[in-house]
């Protein structure tokens, strides 16, 4: 198991290196002159002298490979430099906003797993009966609804009409519920659909038929023989949904005034604050990759074929 984990990490490293190169090059070769943006944000009028000074200060006068290496050396130590807008270390800023985003995405993930998986199993076991039909309609709408708009509808119903839950801000568990539902709905619906399909697939397999034939109680057949096998495909997709949830959370944050990374990223985009933008995208990628690693390990544990099969590859 440890060897499997190590192999996974080793295959990720070159990928992350390429990602960092893309992030670096896109901003350096993108549009405009970073030194101009830097001066604008520092409120220094751009003249030849100040521009030259800014270029030197930012290291833009050095060859590209050298710039990349020194930036990478910093990024590896989580040093993304100073934000051009706030003048504070980017990491410090990000760490201030990241917990709120992670809390929202995490709560959404709980809903995805806590609702998507059991309801998917239910829909499969009650195939073509009313729970199946009901979830099918719900899933169809759920995968099509814009998350931020769903957020507004939830506020309209639960805050404005009923007055049950707060419409804005981050103040205790009650304030987390509506944004988490808005963020989770699409992924929960996709997971439900996948789970249903996986259970239906396993139901017909011979080992399940055999377990039934041996007279095992239905509880054991469902728990040990159906669920454990059926969990693998939805689990794989849950790793991908971490990305959807992180991205979705940042959009939903704007509806609820949730103090997360979304606003920080938007400010970095509109100000063209390069260090902030690079720090943001690297940290989000790291979170996504780390979550996927955990998911990979979880399904290697569930499915020995994956754990052992990789040894030859």
């Amino acid at each position: 198991m440890l060897a499997f984990a190590l192999r996974r990490v080793l295959t990720l490293l070159p990928l992350l290196l390429i990602v960092s190169l893309i992030f670096f090059l896109m901003l350096r070769l993108g549009r405009g002159d970073p030194a101009m943006d830097y001066l604008r944000l520092s409120q220094v009028p751009p003249t030849d002298a100040t521009l030259a000074l800014a270029r030197h200060e930012l290291g833009l006068d050095r060859p590209l490979p050298a710039q990349y290496l020194s930036w990478l050396a910093g990024a590896v130590r989580l040093d993304f430099g100073l934000s051009w807008t706030t003048r504070r270390p980017v990491l410090e800023d990000i760490l201030r906003f990241l917990p709120a985003t992670l809390q929202l995405a995490g709560a959404a993930m709980l809903l995805v797993v806590g609702l998507g998986v059991p309801l998917g199993v239910l829909a499969a076991l009650k195939r073509d009966r009313w729970p199946d039909h009901l979830t099918r309609v719900f899933v169809f709408l759920g995968v099509s609804v814009p998350n931020f708009w769903l957020g507004f509808l939830l506020v309209l119903l639960f805050s404005v009409q009923l007055g049950w839950l707060p419409a804005m801000g981050r103040d205790g568990p009650a304030s987390l519920l509506l944004p988490a539902i808005a963020t989770a709905t699409m992924s929960a619906c996709v997971t439900l659909r996948l789970m249903r399909g996986a259970v239906l697939g396993v139901l017909g397999e011979r080992h399940v038929v055999f377990a039934r034939a041996r007279g095992l109680p239905e509880r054991v057949v469902t728990g040990r023989h159906i669920l454990r096998n059926a969990l693998i495909p939805p689990l794989t997709s849950i790793g991908l949904h971490v990305g959807e949830l992180l991205g979705g959370a940042m959009v939903v944050e704007m509806v609820f005034g949730w103090p997360g990374l979304g606003r920080y990223a938007l400010l970095a985009i509109s100000n063209r604050d390069f260090p902030a933008l690079q720090g943001f995208v690297l940290v989000m990628t790291a979170v996504f990759v780390a979550c996927n690693l955990v998911v990979d390990l979880a399904y290697a544990w569930l499915d020995p074929r994956i754990r052992l099969g990789e040894r030859g590859a």
Binding site: M26, G243, A265, V281, M284, F288
Partner: peptide
Amino acid sequence: TVPTLVLALFFIG
């Protein structure tokens, strides 16, 4: 390896 919306935000930046 990057979440699509995060990547899109970065490219817009």
